[in-house]
Structures are given as structure tokens and as C-alpha cells.
Nucleic acid binder design. Structure first.
Lengths: 118, 118
DNA sequence: CTTGCCTCTGACGTCAACGTCAGGTTCTAG
DNA sequence: CTAGAACCTGACGTTGACGTCAGAGGCAAG
């Protein structure tokens, strides 16, 4: 699979895929002429990467986690990282939930105050 | 209240407070010599700002929301913005929850695989 | 064979929320 | 009155995940 095809399937830019390679998140084979060839498994991997980025992890942490994500096997180091990130994400969730509730309150007040369309 | 004191109370840097002013998130009075003087209400406001930043809102959106946050009164425009951001945050929460669950699964597997300390 | 799309490697640009440094002023304690 | 802390205004630096452009090579179709 070439880079353009993978980009479309994964919904990311070609530039992003090259960037992931720079960050050692992907290591595609090369055709004789030097073009990148990705195996089908790369699609899953790219989606993992995207979701981890969305969860606030930087490339460095993702690199350290990837072997574990592929194999399902953790060293004590990756296990520590997993639990640490889990905690971070959990904390972030609780913060976001509080904010969502605050906004809900504001919205409720606003809808009682503004529209006289009853 | 001067800028250093507010910074300590709010747990942010002095630089951050000046930056907030640049972004029109704060508009402190000035002493005759030109030093910033903040009212007590500024503390609440700074905490709002921090939490909104943490929820992923950029300065621009926060500016538009601030009048509503102070007064509790929404125009139709701010109401739209409130609901839009609420949705965004909600979406982000569900994504994060899924990721947390994935990590929990990985951690559980890892703890079954690695430690033979039973 | 050439047209046109895909790909390659640099390398500079972007954006947001600050950090940091320089050079100067103001406030407060002794 | 003076030393030191706190404050001021620029203005450049930082970080991360890419966007974008330049110039060159590769590949299938007609």
C-alpha cells in the first residue's frame, strides 16, 4: 500500500504519515525506487496514533507505548506508562465533565431567560 | 490587587496574566504610575479562563463567552457558542472514555501476563 | 514518448499559550 | 536615601503536529 492510499483510508494527510515516520511511529518498507510501502496493519496503527494524539499524548510517549499496543505485552516500564497515562486521561475526563455540567447550567439559564416563544 | 498577588492566588504566571490582557480576557485598571490593579472578581475570572483553556477553547472563543459568564445572560450568539462548545467537549469526553477503557484493558492484560507474584 | 498524477527529500511557515531576556521605572523596608 | 523586590514595555524564543512550497524523480496510459 502506498502513502496516498493509506492517507485516504486513515483519514490523515500524507504529510502526517511522513511526520509519523520521523517520530519513529511508523517504519514502512521501501520499494526499489524509494517509495514507501505500508502493510495493511499500518492502518490500525495510524488509527491508534490518532486517538492517542487526540487523548493528549505526545509522540515520545506514543513511541514508548507502540510495541505494547502491537503485541499486547507490557514490560514494567510500559505498564507504568500505561497506568500513568490512564490516570492523566481520567483526570482530564473529570475536568471536562465538570465543565460540561457548568455549560449545561449556563445554557439552561440562558434558555429560561431569553426566548419568550412559548 | 497587583499582578503578582493575583498570579499567586490564581496559580498562574505573571506573564500569563499579561497575555490574557493582550487577548482581551482581562482589563485591569491602572494605578497613576501605570501598574495594573485587579478587582477581587478577577480571581474567579482567571479560574474560568484556565478551565476553559484546559477544556480546549482558544482565546477567541473565551473572549466571546466571557460577558455571558460574568452576567449569566446570553444573547442568541453566545447561546449558540455555548451549545457548540458543550457538544465539542461532550464528544471529546466520549473519545477519552473510550481510550481510558482501552488502556484499562491493556493494563489488565499486562498485569495478568507479567507478574508471577501470586 | 509524453502527459499527468503520485511520490521523494529538504526546508521554511504556522499557530497558540505562554517563557525568557533586556533595559528601565516604581514601590517598600530599613 | 538607598537597596532590593515588584512592576513596566517590547521583543524574540519555544514546543508540537503538522501545512506548504520547491525542485526532482517515478509510473501507468495512450
Amino acid at each position: 500500500m502506498r502513502i496516498g492510499e493509506l492517507a485516504v483510508k486513515a483519514g490523515v494527510s500524507v504529510r502526517a504519515l511522513r511526520y509519523y515516520e520521523e517520530q519513529h511511529l511508523l517504519a514502512p518498507e521501501r520499494s526499489p525506487s524509494g517509495q514507501r510501502r505500508y502493510p495493511d496493519a499500518a492502518l490500525d496503527r495510524v488509527q491508534w496514533i490518532q486517538q492517542l494524539y487526540a487523548a493528549g499524548l505526545p509522540s515520545k510517549k506514543i513511541v514508548e507505548l507502540l510495541p505494547c499496543l502491537d503485541t499486547g505485552v507490557s514490560t514494567s516500564a510500559t505498564l507504568a506508562l500505561l497506568t500513568a497515562e490512564r490516570e492523566r486521561i481520567h483526570t482530564q475526563i473529570t475536568g471536562l465533565v465538570k465543565m460540561r455540567d457548568k455549560l449545561d447550567t449556563l445554557i439552561a439559564v440562558a434558555q429560561q431567560t431569553a426566548p419568550r416563544s412559548t
